[in-house]
Amino acid sequence: MTVTSPQKTILLIGASRGLGYAIAEQYLERGWHVIATGRANSMSKLRQLADKSSGALELETVDITDVDQVIALRERLDDRRLDLLLVNAGVKNDDRETIADVSTDEFVRVMVTNSLSPMRVVERFQDLVDRSGTIAVMSSGQGSVTNNVNGNYEVYRGSKAALNTFMRSYAARHAGDGRTLLLLAPGWVRTDMGGPEARLSVEESIPNLVDTIEAHAGRTGLHYVDYLGRVVPW
């Protein structure tokens, strides 16, 4: 008699394009039930994927910079239980802007989207994640203070370094929690955000990134790792 394992569920925040869309595809291929989110005006590609998924892909709309929308999504998913919460949401600014150049409005936009909003999602949805599950947030190797030896991408770097610090504080407040906490550095990937000059293809990054997430399942505490599972220095 063959015993099948229960289908696992991921809530993937920010899946309408780029890395997020590829992550959704990867988890569907691995037999997971995927609850994927995007902004209301960016769902067409995900809807096409959902139509082919035989019900395995469930769509929700949310702008995580809008607190009311985050609260409403949490209420809609109140009775769900998750094996994995993965927050993949972020923006970049003009790569040439230094901290001396950036406007206050642009600085706030990047910091709210890349640092504050992902942590609000983690705080709001943490209790839906199984006690032995995983909470993962998409960071970047550029969030490493140690590795910042040439400057560049200053505002984006700062937003990811802030995200890392907030996640580390979250881990400290939840010491002894059985969940795995991950900060993920997917590498420089050729997407709309990464640009055509990026070193990695989506196919080189995302399957390895998902392997890394799965390899860390059950390893409690906070881990800052890249797509190949290598530890990234803080």
Rank of each mutant, 00 (worst) to 15 (best):
A161S: 14
R96A: 13
V129Q: 02
V87L: 08
V34M: 04
Q69R: 07
L128W: 14
S54W: 08
N93Y: 07
T113H: 00
L84F: 03
A185G: 01
D105G: 00
V121D: 06
H33T: 15
I71K: 14
D68E: 15
N147V: 02
W188S: 01
G187F: 10
G195N: 08
A50I: 05
Y156E: 13
R96Y: 07
E29M: 05
E60W: 10
Q7S: 03
E25H: 05
N150S: 14
S42Q: 14
G20C: 05
L200N: 02
E214R: 04
I23Y: 09
M1H: 14
E75I: 11
E97W: 05
E197P: 00
Q69W: 12
R39K: 10
S44E: 15
T220R: 00
I71M: 10
D226I: 04
D79I: 05
W234F: 10
D226Q: 07
A171H: 10
K160W: 14
G178K: 06
D101I: 03
V137Q: 08
A100I: 00
A217K: 13
T104I: 10
A172K: 15
V62D: 12
E203F: 02
S140M: 11
L200H: 03
H216N: 07
A100R: 08
N93H: 07
Y153A: 10
S54P: 01
A24W: 13
N148R: 08
Y27V: 05
I13S: 02
R17A: 03
L28I: 05
E197S: 10
V62Q: 11
K45W: 12
T61S: 11
G14H: 08
A56H: 14
V137C: 07
R131S: 14
Y27A: 01
Y227R: 04
T212V: 04
A50G: 04
A215H: 12
G31F: 08
D51T: 06
A56I: 06
A22G: 01
L228Y: 15
E106D: 13
I206F: 03
D63W: 05
A72G: 07
H223G: 02
E214N: 07
R17H: 06
Y153M: 14
A100M: 12
G38S: 13
R179C: 03
P118C: 06
